[in-house]
Design a binder for these strands. Structure first.
Lengths: 191, 191
DNA sequence: TAGATTGTTAATCGATTAACAATC
DNA sequence: TAGATTGTTAATCGATTAACAATC
């Protein structure tokens, strides 16, 4: 909206865009403060700034990527991180040809140096892009040195320390969602 | 669990693994049938079969990928699709060097042939892996020819026809979730 | 001022959890 | 049989929505 030059937006309009009730929009936002103006709505740039702050994306974060495969490359090249103040500081992988090299300016270290080269004071979170059967061991190692947040991609549940936020974003769940709904529609069409 | 040779599992144990109340497990499953045995729990292989069927993953699905970038390659190489009976039938992209070629045995066509070469009777769903600003137009085109399900990756909301299930899986949301929680923890630590 | 829209309280709705009879 | 655990009903809890005074 900001790019489109929209100045002001109402809960009504926001609700329509996101497919939720306008009250929901107002209620949710009011949990964090009063960002709107009665009679007018919300100023787009202000609202964006507030949400950015709520999410903690107004400050800089440092992160490491574990695993230097195709998926990691997607992230390294995506710009989604830079745009959100998320700096990829280091990559860990066990491929001999990559260790000691740089990928897009980010240096690659061997997995065995993980504990040594990650400092939770510096690196706030980790993206775990290793094969599914290695995810748990990586989380264990990261948890042990005190990393407090991680994102992983695997069709399985994992264990993590109490004070570590671990989020899964495997495509499997969404694929299941799609086929579940499609199945229902097809049956409906047939019935 | 099946791989680990576990025969039987209780709602108690499943709840522990997923971090939810055992009642929740039983209630949710009972929406679709009675898959357990009183006094014993659920038989792992049977439960898996039931869930597979509920999700519609017991039948074969055909899908197309729009966009032949790095992300598409992750999917093409991942095996997550084949494992779930999801067959990638065709890829669409506008890179001249790719059109007419095959990627891992899947043929690539130009974007302009999209309407011509996709038949919703054959292709049930689409993975949209194009730059964010092109996602909406792809959804419009797919919706028009009657594709009923799509998965896309972009930090923006889209419009789709009523009868089309569109799921977003952009990494941005999860990154925001992580920084939101981390921020709270850090403030807590400081306070 | 009249019209619009917020922020918030109250009402509704649905989802989660507890409890327990059924039963393996 | 005694112990365990489901499937389901009832109770609780929380989330969503409606309503409206405040006010721009």
């Amino acid at each position: 909206m900001e790019n489109a030059g929209v100045q002001t937006v109402s809960s009504q309009r926001l609700g329509k865009i996101e497919g939720v009730n306008p009250s929901q929009i107002r209620k949710d936002l009011s949990m964090f403060g009063s960002f709107g103006h009665r009679g007018f709505g919300y100023e787009v740039s202000q609202l964006k700034a507030h949400i950015t702050e709520i999410l903690g994306l107004n400050r800089k974060w440092s992160l490491v990527i574990i695993g230097a495969g195709q998926l990691s490359n997607v992230f390294i090249n995506s710009g989604a991180f830079r745009k959100r103040n998320l700096r990829i500081r280091k990559i860990f992988d066990d491929t001999p040809e990559l260790i000691g090299k740089k990928i897009k300016g980010i240096s690659v270290s061997g997995m065995k140096n993980l504990e040594e080269e990650i400092d939770p004071e510096t690196d706030n979170l980790a993206i775990i892009a290793v094969p599914p059967n290695r995810v748990q061991s990586v989380i264990d190692r990261l948890g042990k040195i005190g990393i407090k947040g991680a994102l992983y991609f695997a069709a399985r549940a994992v264990n993590a320390p109490e004070d570590m936020v671990v989020v899964n974003q495997d495509v499997s769940v969404e694929l299941g969602t799609l086929t579940y709904h499609l199945k229902a529609r097809i049956n409906q069409g047939a019935g």
